[in-house]
């Protein structure tokens, strides 16, 4: 039996009155991979993730997430963590986890306890009182504690202090990741993130400038992903 890819995009275009956010994107993301979605600000990374998450509808083209059109069914199996101010400021960390649990029964409460300890967050803290870095960690907790088949993280490192970044990234793909979970991480901090990617997609002005297995690209070009980022996207 052929396994269904986590994400398939066919000629996806997202047009706005004055701009084109995505200009014909073709992509296949295999199940179980850790994928880096790399590009400068405004290259279309967020739009792409939001289309996969079902928050935006493409102007034209086909989108398949876990074999289905984005909708309620895919939202049950996808965790999307946006870049900024994700959650309700007036909730406490535990309120939020309870709230998420009521919509996603797959949220593992034991794991949230473990993650809170790892990320150094207190359950009774008000979300509005958390620092930017703590909010970024909270997003990761919410994403990682679910058995979601597909985890979409938009700039998860923004706001996290550089010394913690590597630690969190490696925990993210290592002990914290659920078995077989597909992870798509958008970032422009390639240096720190690159050893964790199986597959990389370089996005430039709404188009895929280059994509492939990170290892194959290294073998072919003799460049690191960071160097390729500079070369492809300049």
């Amino acid at each position: 039996m052929m396994t269904i890819p986590a994400v398939m995009l066919e000629n996806v275009v997202k047009r706005y009155p004055l701009t084109r956010a995505l200009d014909g994107v073709n992509l296949t993301i295999e199940r179980g991979k850790v994928v880096g979605l790399l590009g400068h600000n405004g290259s279309g990374k967020t739009t792409l993730l939001k289309i996969i998450a079902g928050l935006r509808t493409p102007t034209s083209g086909q989108v398949r997430v876990l074999g289905m059109a984005p909708g309620l069914e895919t939202k049950k199996r996808v965790a999307f963590l946006p870049e900024v101010n994700t959650f309700y400021n007036w909730m406490t960390v535990d309120d939020l986890l309870k709230f998420v649990k009521s919509f996603h029964p797959d949220l593992d409460l034991e794991k949230t306890a473990e993650l809170k300890a790892f990320m150094n967050l207190k359950g009774e803290s008000k979300i509005g009182a958390l620092s930017k870095g703590q909010q970024a960690r909270l997003k990761l907790i919410v994403g990682l504690a679910r058995q979601a088949d597909l985890l979409l993280l938009d700039e998860p490192l923004a706001g996290i202090d550089p010394p913690s970044r590597a630690k969190i990234l490696h925990a993210l793909v290592g002990e914290l990741r659920q078995e077989g979970q597909t992870v798509v991480i958008s970032t422009h901090e390639v240096k720190e993130a690159e050893p964790i990617f199986d597959h990389v997609i370089f996005l430039r002005q709404g188009r895929v400038a280059l994509e492939g297995e990170a290892e194959a690209l290294r073998a072919e070009t003799g460049h690191s992903m960071e160097e390729l980022f500079g070369e492809v996207l300049e």
């Binding site: 079902g54 939202k75 400021n89």
Partner: peptide, 14 residues
């Protein structure tokens, strides 16, 4: 305004 719409709309809610 608060930026919570993406999170809310990513929940499996009609």
């Amino acid at each position: 305004k608060e930026g919570t719409a993406p999170f809310l709309r990513s929940l499996p809610l009609s």
